[in-house]
Simulated assay, not measured.
Amino acid sequence: MHQSTLGPWLRRPMVRPEAEMRLVCFPHAGGAASSFRPWQSLLPEGIEHVTVQYPGREDRFTDSPVDSMDVLVREVADALGPLLDGPYALFGHSMGSAVAYEVAQELRRRGFRAPVRLLVAGRASPHHAVAGDIHRRGDGALADELARYGATPREVLADPELRAAILGYVRSDYRLIETYRPSSAEPLDCPVSVFFGSEDPECGARDAETWSSTTSHPLTTTAFDGGHFFLVPRRALLAEAIGRDLGVGFQRPVRTWPSTP
């Protein structure tokens, strides 16, 4: 399937017909598919990566944001169905880790094969993560939260129009994850890998270990230098770790023009 046939929910920067498996990526709260675009030149050639594009941002700016985990999971599972004709894995960062977990559970309910592995970062397991109330606070508090993580430059938030647009979908994302209650399902029948930043207050070594309850297989944890967004400066190292955990031989792809703009 080319990008034109993937629909609104998925983005694929590069088609790799000979890839051994697909890696489906789920961004953090406030994040978008573009955050994973650099991975096309870092992941092993044997992996084709596809990223979920949440509504309300980037090329889906005019689409209404989704603030319900159940709705989001159903929509993503519908979109992924045609791509699950071979081995696949799921990767989620922060809020995306919970979405990836719930999508794995939903795909199992629908009778699809299990993912080769669930890979997560930046958040304790759904059954252990602490829910906040950021979505109930004013715009100032929400903007401060974004600035605290360094995910959005302060000069962007200083522009009234950009600030209003960004805070609109970010608030929906926070509402989704802060009102989310995990499904009481059986552990997944696939291994789970957890990546975390050594200085991340949201997910340290102890938080990473909580994911052991989500799988019937041994848990793999890997620490990286950095904070909550360690995966930006440590992209290359993380790509190597992902290839290792997925059992795909590491060979950087030849740099080519992407298949879509």
Rank of each mutant, 00 (worst) to 15 (best):
I47G: 08
I47Q: 07
E48R: 13
E48A: 12
H49A: 14
V50G: 13
V52Y: 07
V52G: 03
V52L: 09
V52W: 03
Q53N: 13
Q53S: 12
Q53L: 10
Y54I: 07
Y54E: 05
Y54L: 15
P55M: 11
P55R: 09
G56S: 12
G56D: 13
E58H: 04
E58R: 05
E58D: 11
E58L: 03
E58W: 02
E58K: 03
E58Y: 01
D59P: 03
R60V: 01
R60C: 03
R60P: 01
R60W: 07
F61K: 08
D63P: 00
D63G: 00
D63Q: 14
D63K: 01
S64M: 08
S64E: 15
P65E: 09
P65C: 04
P65S: 04
V66K: 06
V66S: 08
V66E: 03
D67V: 00
D67G: 01
D67T: 00
M69L: 07
D70S: 13
V71L: 09
V73R: 00
V73S: 00
R74I: 00
R74T: 09
E75H: 06
E75M: 05
E75D: 11
V76C: 02
A77P: 01
A77K: 00
A77H: 03
A77C: 03
D78K: 04
D78E: 14
D78G: 02
A79H: 06
A79V: 08
A79D: 06
L80F: 05
P82L: 11
L84W: 13
L84K: 10
L84R: 09
L84E: 14
G86T: 03
P87V: 01
P87C: 04
Y88W: 01
Y88C: 01
Y88M: 01
Y88A: 00
L90Y: 07
F91M: 06
F91W: 04
F91V: 06
G92W: 03
H93K: 11
H93E: 09
S94V: 06
S94F: 09
M95K: 12
G96Y: 05
S97I: 02
A98K: 03
V99G: 01
A100D: 05
Y101I: 02
E102K: 07
E102Q: 08
V103E: 10
A104H: 09
A104F: 08
Q105K: 13
Q105I: 15
E106Y: 06
E106S: 10
L107C: 11
L107G: 06
L107K: 04
R108G: 15
R108A: 15
R109M: 14
R109W: 10
R109P: 03
G111C: 13
G111Y: 13
A114H: 15
A114I: 12
A114V: 14
A114Q: 15
P115A: 12
P115R: 12
P115E: 09
R117N: 09
R117T: 12
R117L: 07
L118A: 10
L118Q: 03
L118M: 11
V120F: 08
A121S: 15
A121T: 08
A121N: 06
A121D: 02
G122F: 05
R123I: 11
A124H: 02
A124S: 14
S125H: 07
S125R: 07
P126N: 11
P126I: 12
P126Y: 12
